[in-house]
Amino acid sequence: MITGIPFEILFAIGFVILAPFIGAFIVGIDRKVTARKQGRVGPPVLQPLYDIFKLFEKEKVVVTNEVNFYILSHLIFVVFTGALFFSGGDILLVIFALTLAHVFLILGAYAAVSPYSHVGAGRELLQLMAVEPMLIIAAAGFYMVTESFAVKDIVLSPGLPVMTIPLIFVGIVFVLTIKLRKSPFDLATSHHAHQELVEGLTTEFAGPTLGMVEIAHLYETVFLLGIVWLFFASASMPWIGVLAVIIVYFLEILVDNTTTRVRWQVMLRSAWLVALVAGAVNLGVLALM
C-alpha cells in the first residue's frame, strides 16, 4: 500500500502541480456543458487557462497595494489546504485552513474599500458562516466512522463512509453549491457574468490580482471534489469515488443552470437547517448505535 511520509509529500506536490490543470479542465467542461444546455457552442475546454494567462499579461492596476497581499495569502492558504488534504493530513486542520484562506479573501475585498467589494465581502462572510457548521459536522462524522481525523486513515478504513453517514453526504453536496459559487447561492460573486455584470467580491481585483483569485478557485474546486470523493473512498475501488464526483458535479451544473439567485436569508437558513438536520440525525443515530 502506498503510505509513509515520502508518499505523503509526493501527493502534496502532485496536488500543487496538477490541481490547476485538472481544475481548469473541470471548469472548462462545466462551461461547455452549460453552453450546450443554452444552445451555444461554448468556449474551448481549456478556455479557463487561457483566461488566466491573459490576466497575468494585463496592466497591474490596483485600488490599494494591500489588496494584493491578502489575495496572495488567500491563494497560498487554499493551496496549503488542498495539499494538506491530499497528503492525508488532519481533516479538521484542513477545514480550519480553508476558513483562514477565505478570511484572507474577505479581508482583501474589505481592504479595497469600495461599495461593491464591501457588499461582496459581507456576503462572502455570510456564505462562510453558512457553510462552516456542515464542514465541521462532516469532520465529526468521518471521525465517528473511522476513529480518526486523518484523511489517510479515512481512505484506508474498510467500507465506504457514505454508507454510514449518508445524510452528512447530502448536507455536503448542498453546501458544495455555495462553495463552488454556483447559483442559487452565488451571492458574493458569480462566474462569467452569470447573473450580474458587476461582480461583488471581485469588483476591484484586476489583472494578476484577479488571476490569483481564479487560480485559487481552481485549486479549491479540486479540493472540494476531493471531499466528495472521500465519502466514497475505498482503497480497492477508487473508481466509485470518481464516478460519484462526476455525478455530483453534473448535478451542480444542472442546479446552476436551472435556478436563480436567492436572498442571503434563504441561503443562511437553508444551509443551517440542512446542517442541523443532517448533523443531529446522522450523528445522533451513530452515537446511539
Binding site: 476558513t99 478570511v103 462572510l125 455570510l126 462562510l128 458562516m129 453558512a130 457553510v131 462552516e132 457548521p133 456542515m134 465541521i136 459536522i137 465529526a140 443551517w272 446542517a275 442541523l276 448533523g279 443531529a280 450523528l283 445522533g284 451513530l286 452515537a287
Partner: peptide, 18 residues
C-alpha cells in the same frame, strides 16, 4: 451523547468567524 455538543460547537465556530 457528545454529538449535541459537536453541533453546538460547529455552529458556534461559524458564528465566531463572522
Amino acid at each position: 451523547y457528545g454529538f449535541v455538543l459537536v453541533i453546538l460547537l460547529a455552529f458556534g465556530c461559524a458564528v465566531t468567524v463572522f
